Simulated assay, not measured.
Amino acid sequence: MGKTGAKTQIRFSMIVGSDWLFEHLQDPNIRIVDIRGRVESTEPRYHSEPELYAVSHIPGAVFIDWTKDIVDLEDPVPVNLASPEKFSELMSSLGISNETTVVAYDDHNRMFSSRLVWALRYYGHTKAKILDGGFANWVREGKPADTSVPKYDRKNFIAVPHPYLKKSADQVQFRSSDTLLLDGRRPEVFAKGFIPGAINISHTSLTDPNTGKFLSKDKLQISFQNVGVDIHSLPEKIICYCNGGVSATVVVTALGILGREDISVYDGSWNEWGKDPNRPKDQV
């Protein structure tokens, strides 16, 4: 697990539609993951929603608690990514190997499914996908739901970190001048404090509020253009962050849809940066 993967080994994990997933519900090589949750503006901020899974979920789906299962609970920075050992054990216990296709869904603007897919990619998994529109869209389209909790045979998942996909505070602060730094938080949150040089591209501007699906490529380009980012002339290095490295992965997904596969996430994000008196900060 200590091995480090090469940059060229990771491909972007594309979104999939509900029709595709419905057609593949019985595929033994696919594992569906319900990772529903929410983020509050007040403490405690981060919540998973196992109660929603218990009421209804996509048939065959397993549940992952994004606040505990895929994070390092010993890290003083909230919701930072779990260690390779913990992540490998979780995936293995859910019947997920490095060759298993994972389809993740949530109902919070694709934040948690994007976070899981990014985490899988960081650990070398190249077959993770996001269910476009999440569970709400699945139900809206009249597709089946279930209450049974499946049990799968254990498989072997080996986490191989790909460091270029995850950045530290020092790497952000001392980044090269040509690095594009994107803040995925809502504008009202960004205005209260942000990393100097960051451009605010709210994750909510990248999805359709009615369907929960990602915007078309043309509309995604417009969303980026609206904040001064030209998709056709992006720099080589791009880092995304937010409050906890979660909504930032929605931006990563959007850029992936537009063809950029090598986007980094500052995992500590504002949870770490904002509380450190030694880090420079700006306000609107």
Rank of each mutant, 00 (worst) to 15 (best):
L215Q: 08
S48A: 15
A254D: 01
S223Q: 07
L181Y: 05
P209A: 01
E236R: 10
V250L: 01
P209S: 05
L206N: 00
K219N: 15
I15R: 15
L234V: 01
E23D: 15
F63S: 05
P78I: 03
G142D: 02
A248W: 02
D230W: 05
T100L: 05
L181V: 09
Y105K: 03
R115M: 05
E74L: 09
P209H: 10
G256R: 04
G95C: 03
K237C: 12
I158R: 09
R110M: 15
L180N: 01
W118I: 08
H47G: 02
R36E: 11
Y123M: 06
G244A: 14
P78W: 00
G274V: 07
G268W: 04
N80D: 10
F87Q: 06
I231H: 00
L116T: 11
G274Y: 07
H24L: 00
G184A: 15
F214P: 08
R186Q: 14
L234I: 03
Y123T: 00
A136V: 10
S233M: 07
F157S: 02
M1F: 12
W273P: 04
L52D: 15
H24E: 09
R279C: 15
E261I: 12
A198Y: 02
K217S: 14
G5W: 09
V172E: 02
V251F: 04
V189S: 13
D282Q: 14
I239M: 05
K167H: 08
V227N: 10
M111A: 15
F63D: 01
S177T: 13
K217V: 13
R11P: 11
I130F: 10
A169F: 03
G142C: 07
I199C: 04
G184C: 11
P277C: 01
P280D: 02
D208N: 13
R260S: 08
D153W: 10
E141G: 06
V160Y: 06
E49D: 14
V103Y: 01
R185Q: 03
T8Y: 13
S205Y: 09
K237V: 08
T100K: 00
D72C: 07
V79P: 03
E99L: 12
G95V: 05
I96M: 09
L165A: 01
